[in-house]
Amino acid sequence: MSISTTGVLPRAETAAPKRAPRRRLPSPRRWISPVALVAAWQIASSTGALPPDKLSSPWTVLQAGADVARSGELGSAFVVSLGRVGAGFALGALAGLVLGAVAGLSRWGEALVDPPVQMLRTLPFLGLIPLFILWFGIGEETKVFLVALGVAFPLYLNVHSGIRTADPQLVEAARALGFTRAERLWHVVLPGALPPALVGLRQSLGVAWLALIVGETVNADAGIGYLINNAREFLRTDVVVVGLVVYAVLGLVTDALVRLLERRALRWRAQ
């Protein structure tokens, strides 16, 4: 007596493939508190509880934003500020990545690089503005180097930590399989360090915009910070809020871009 396998293999072969997990959209509940805050702000302004010389209403801020956008003032300030952040971020990211890799991959590198970096990291970098002005003057260099300094430290810490916390069992397994040191770094250590490095990248971008706000208060003649300072001189709180909103939106957009990069670069974690 034999057991027929007719229909078994075809059924296994035609099994439905696994569906990719659907991307969850942000919950509408996340909009409740921001909308409620804006509504409370508008009500307080309309009833006079919040004087316009202290803080303009959301509707006034919206009108002021439209005015400075039509005049071209906002667009030119946006381009200048974006250029400063881009230059500072490039310098700071390069320094943070190189120093973090040197300190993470080498014991001698950690002994030589980590102590001075940790000492500099504990300094209030805003307190370095007078020294930067003495070194670089009040031109673009001071603003760019302030951004670079704010970017370098979070990225350094996360890259260094990611390399040092690589799974030792995976490293040993790769060594047992005959991987060279370069192959172990490429296939084991660097993929393991990528998640914290991307977290450091998000932190660095947030600090970059904060540093730019401070840098653009140092005798700037262009940029969003100059727009805010100029509005403050004329008690235009509506334009001040417009500049702050632009800073916030730029920070959110850059963070969203890094999160998109993170989802694409770390797809292997969902497997």
Rank of each mutant, 00 (worst) to 15 (best):
M1V: 14
T5F: 15
P10V: 03
T14H: 11
A15R: 13
P17Y: 12
R19P: 08
R22A: 14
R23K: 09
L25A: 15
P26Q: 04
P26F: 05
S33F: 15
S33W: 14
S33K: 07
P34T: 01
A39M: 06
S45K: 06
T47F: 00
P51N: 04
W59F: 07
V61P: 06
L62E: 09
L62C: 10
Q63E: 15
A64F: 14
A66L: 15
A66S: 12
A69I: 12
A69L: 15
E73M: 10
L74G: 07
V79F: 09
V79T: 13
V80R: 09
G83F: 02
G83L: 04
G88S: 02
G92T: 01
A103D: 02
W108K: 11
P115E: 06
Q118G: 11
M119N: 07
M119P: 08
M119A: 14
L120I: 10
R121S: 08
R121E: 10
F125V: 14
L126H: 01
P130I: 03
F132T: 07
I133K: 00
W135N: 05
W135S: 01
K143N: 01
V144P: 04
F145E: 04
Y156P: 04
N158L: 04
H160C: 02
A166Y: 03
Q169P: 02
L170P: 00
V171T: 15
V171D: 12
A174L: 02
R175D: 09
A176T: 12
T180E: 09
A182Q: 12
L185F: 15
V188Y: 15
P191C: 05
L194A: 13
L194R: 10
L201R: 03
L201C: 00
G206S: 08
V207N: 11
A211Y: 14
I213R: 09
V214H: 06
G215E: 03
T217E: 07
N219F: 09
G223R: 04
I224S: 05
G225P: 13
G225L: 11
Y226W: 11
Y226T: 08
I228F: 06
N229Q: 11
R232D: 13
V240G: 06
V242F: 04
V242C: 08
V242M: 08
G243M: 06
L244N: 07
V246N: 00
Y247H: 05
V249D: 04
V249N: 03
L250M: 14
G251D: 02
T254Y: 06
T254M: 08
L260C: 09
R264A: 12
R267E: 03
W268Y: 14
A270E: 07
